[in-house]
Amino acid sequence: MRWIWIDRFVEFEPGKRALAVKNVSLAEEHVHDYWEAYPTHPAALMVEGFAQTSGILVGQANDFEHDVVLAKVAKAEFTDIVVPGDQLHYEAEITNLAPEAASVEGTVRKNGEVIANISMMFSHANNAMQGLELPHGFVFTGSFQRMVEPFLEKRND
């Protein structure tokens, strides 16, 4: 299994906003691990899915020069649960982009209905944690970068 909690990007405006989709399936192992008798896709993994949508958006804004790490979840309020067969959309917008960090806000929609509002911050690890000698490129592996390539190619046409 790969730790990728979005299926693909539907819309991607570099430096501004991104919309990603995630289809929840009964075939996925994790939905059976939360409540055994009632398969669900847990909220924590929706926070992760939103963070991946946002993290790639923030990373791409600087051409993946910085290693972007989740630094803070200021808000994550959910109003509904998600079960296999549901389709999720994560919509994230950059509200601030600074040399050392970025903030993002957005929603999670389930089958078109907003079920969560999320606000989070990312740190540009190599700028923010100087002296720790973090390896460069430890966040954005090829599989993450490939997800946005179609949108970037379209822009360059």
């Binding site: 803070k72 050392e100 903030s103």
Partner: peptide, 13 residues
């Protein structure tokens, strides 16, 4: 520490 930057961002807005 990260909260101080968050506060700065929010005050600016």
């Amino acid at each position: 520490s990260i909260d101080f930057l968050d506060i700065v961002f929010r005050l600016e807005k």
